[in-house]
Each structure stands twice: as C-alpha cells, then as structure tokens.
Nucleic acid binder design. Sequence first.
DNA 1: GAGTTGACTAGAATATAGTTCTAGGATGTA
DNA 2: TACATCCTAGAACTATATTCTAGTCAACTC
Lengths: 220, 220
Amino acid sequence: MRRRGLHPGTAERRREIFCAALECFAEIGFSQTTMADIRRRAKASTGSIYHQFESKEHLAAEIFLEGIADYQAGWIAALERETDARGGLRAVIGHHLRWVRSNETWARYLFQRRHSAFTAAAERKLAELNAEFLRRASLWFATHMEAGRLRRLPPDIYIALVAGPYTEHTRHYLSGRDCTNTEEVIEMLADAAWRSLAVRPDQPGSARERGQPRTSGGAR
Amino acid sequence: MRRRGLHPGTAERRREIFCAALECFAEIGFSQTTMADIRRRAKASTGSIYHQFESKEHLAAEIFLEGIADYQAGWIAALERETDARGGLRAVIGHHLRWVRSNETWARYLFQRRHSAFTAAAERKLAELNAEFLRRASLWFATHMEAGRLRRLPPDIYIALVAGPYTEHTRHYLSGRDCTNTEEVIEMLADAAWRSLAVRPDQPGSARERGQPRTSGGAR
DNA sequence: GAGTTGACTAGAATATAGTTCTAGGATGTA
DNA sequence: TACATCCTAGAACTATATTCTAGTCAACTC
C-alpha cells in the first residue's frame, strides 16, 4: 500500500501543465495544439504530462469542466442574489460579460469554439453540471413567471432569449471585432431581455441607479 | 497543352466524396473523422480523394463555404422580400429555423461546432461572404432605424439580439433536446425580437395572418 | 483503328503527432 | 542505508494525414 504524501512540487507541475494547455487551446484551438506545444510551454516531458493526465482529451475535459463550473457558479450566485425579475436578468447578463472580460483565456476556450466531444466520463460530469445549473435557474425563473412578472414561455425559448444574445455578443467580442463598451452592452442587452421577457416591460421595474433612457435609441 | 474535356464521371466522383465528407463531419465532427472514413463511405481511394481535394482542411472549407453561401443567400432573400420592419424580422428568423430543419446535416456542420480554422484562402473567402452579408443586412436595418421603426443600437448589439436567440435555439435543437414545435418557435422568437428592437412594440405592426396573442403568456 | 495525351484511380510509402513503455531519479520512512 | 512510492525522461510504438509511383481509361489525332 502507498506510503501516502505527494512529493513536493507535484501539484505545481500539474498546474503548470494545466495552464500551458489552457493557453495553447485558447490560442490555437484544441486540435491545432500538439502535445509537443504543451510540453514546450510547460517545460515538461512527455512522460510527465501523461503521468498527470490520462490523455489530451482528458486534459481538455478537465480544463473545460473547471472553467464551466466557475462560470456557472458565478452565474447562479448573481441570479440568486436578486429577488427582482428585472434585476436578475441584468445580473446574469452582467456576470456573463464581466466574466468573459476578466477570464478571456478561459472564455476563448469555453465559448468561442467548443470542442466537439469529450470522454464519456467528462460528458457525464458536464451533463450533471448543466442539469444542476438549469434546475436552479429554472426555479428562479418559474417563481417570477408564477408571480406574473415574466412571460410564460417554454424552456427552450427562455434559454434562447436569455443566453442567445450574450453568447452571440461574446463570439463577436472574442473574434476581435468592434464592440461597444462593456457596461453599455450590459445595459442594452439587459434592457432588451427585459423587453422581450417581461409581462409589462413598461412598468418602472428596477431601472437601477443611473437612469439610462429606456425608450429612446442612440444609446451609442 | 491540354486536350480539354473532363472525363465523364469526374463531377460525380467529386460530389460523392464531398457528400460522404459532409455526412462524416456532421455525424462525428471534423477532427474525429478520418480520411479512411470518408474513403470508405465514398467508396473512393486515397489517391482519388487527394486528386479532387487538396487536403482534409480544403475539403472541410469547401463544404463549409457552400453551406454558408446557400444559407446566407436565403437569409438575405427572405429579408429583402419584406418591406415591413416586423415582417423582416420574422422572415429571417423563419428562414433560419426552416433552413436548419430542412438541411439538418449541413446545419450540424455549420452551426453546432464550427471548425476552428480553415486555410487562409478559405478564411478570406468566408470574410468576403460575411462582409457582403452584413452590408446588405445593415442596409435594410438602417432604413428602418432611420424611419423610426427600429431602435438605434450599435451593430454588435443588433447582431446579438437578432442572431443570438435563433442561433442558441438551434444549438439546443441540434443537440437533441426537447423543443417547441418549429412554427411556434418562429412566432415566439419573432415576437421577442420585435419587442426588443421596435421603437413602439405595442403598435399593431404586421402581426400577420393568424393573430397569436401578443401580450399574454402561455403561448405554450 | 493504333497511338498519344492527360485526367483520374489505386494503393504503397512517408511523415507527423498522440500514446505507451521502460528505466531511472527523487523524496520520505524505518 | 534500504525501501517504497511518486514522478520524470525520452525512446518506441501506433494511428492517421499526406505524398508518391504506377498505372487505367476516355477522347482525340492521324
């Protein structure tokens, strides 16, 4: 049986490989990245990498899962912090945009070009994460639908209307094209989400601190 | 100098390989697909494939470009057929959803997991397609903004609000999850787009034939 | 209709990149 | 110091994209 106690430096080595791989995947994509690229960037040997990670697939999956877990945790936290329907929409949109800005490398790997398929185990873990994420989000939204503040629409439509715009905007942003200032994007997307999902979008709602014009255009 | 005149069967062979590759890419993804898979499905030899297409990358790019060109042409045609702002939004959303339904194989390759990077030539061609696509779409939208029917918002926001929801819904659909009936999805997404983009969403607009309820929920 | 040409096909050979394997080094414990 | 375990190194192996060489076949010329 094992003596116990990892050798010092092991965790660091593992993390070095992990980070090197993340950078490679984000910069040149999963399939373009060779194990040699990772080896060079992490200054590790082939054996070392394969000792820490079962395969390139597993490495990619672990990175993906850690990123998505952090992202989703923040998303749910931002949502559940708000009791107000409009505030909740703004909160998740804000969380998404800001998370992408402050975790650009991760975002590039997670959102820009999702890697096709992972190992069965990783897919299972991902499905679990998504299920729990959806369960908690649905709960929050259901409350507001029942209270008559948000429109009753099927789940697939909700997902499309809430996540679609910010996801599309992120693709735009990550591909390096011209974008409006982040805080303004948040305002505009939150406003649009509210218009499309609220039962009575014209009610004052919680327009929040700085009252940006809600009907006029030219928010440029 | 060349005698001229292709051998009979050449175009067919090329097409067989093209289609076999499309199916493989759609089913198991670009990187998972091996040239042997394509060879088997097309009943062609290695030499034959490489005679017709420069590489796996080039083959993928050609397929991608043909698909995207057809999709974009239909999108623009649907848009320009409409002079009414609300009708135009509904038209492009309808085109997207229906195109995906009737070209599921293509859609799976084009929208589900976009392949990371093509050859420089293909990227250039794609950029050209996108530029022309955006140019014509912008023209149409600008007209309606100037007429005061659609809100003035920056281009990145417009793209996010118009394309985001239907793109997200398509990912949902292609991943095999439960979806609302297509025509209803079109109604709901078109309605939501109108709410978020119209200067006065409550104005009658062009609600079209069968008057579905616009304010009430429960359109399930 | 025999000869010639060039598009096309076949399949073996090659190269590249992921993975496995074997040997050894380092560290903590007795 | 001896042993056990973890970790590292890098060579060997394998799978897969691509190249190469040797043809085959249709159409055209004389």
